[in-house]
Amino acid sequence: MIEINNLVVKYKTITFKFEDYHFKKNKISVISGRNGAGKTTLLKAIASLIEYEGKIKVNGVITYNSQEAVIFNRSVFENIIYPLKIRKLDISLYQEKIMEYAKVLSIDHLLNKNALKLSSGEKMKVAIIRSIIFNPEIVLLDEPTTHLDLESITELSNLIKKLKNQITFIIVSHNKTFIEELIDEEYYLGGKICFS
């Protein structure tokens, strides 16, 4: 699904040299490593959000969800349908799916609320639904559990497991329980590649 060869990313004064990786289709891949190992940099390079040298071959539509959820100044529902709107898709066809995902993540009662007024955890849930609602083939999640409570982490795990057959997930997380619940493959940055 994603092939990375000879990847080098220069960020300010630091240069990250990555090993060659191959992320497989419909697997949940977890990227681990110490702080500053370049996990976020790797995700951003895969999402083509930063410049890099080397080769990244991506098969499919990809979306990246950052560590701090970036929420637009509008209702939760309007935030979620943004990717559908810009693709000029019929929103009514997605209503059921939006409700379903919102229920799984327990934000179905917040759909009409201004998303900027939500807690950090709720904002993260909105951002995650927004990044999966348009059926991308690959979803990159950068520390999605940072602001989530234990119950919410379980809800997110359930949602990811449910979508596993349709979406390839690449997740950066330090949350061991969350990782163990989901992991198909693990990639360790700054050392050897580990497969579980």
Partner: peptide, 26 residues
Amino acid sequence: KKILETATTLGANKIDKITLLIKEIK
């Protein structure tokens, strides 16, 4: 920066991004 980055990753083109930015900094 963050808004445009998010819009890019959600598939927005240049006009979508400008429209979004205008709305966000209204």
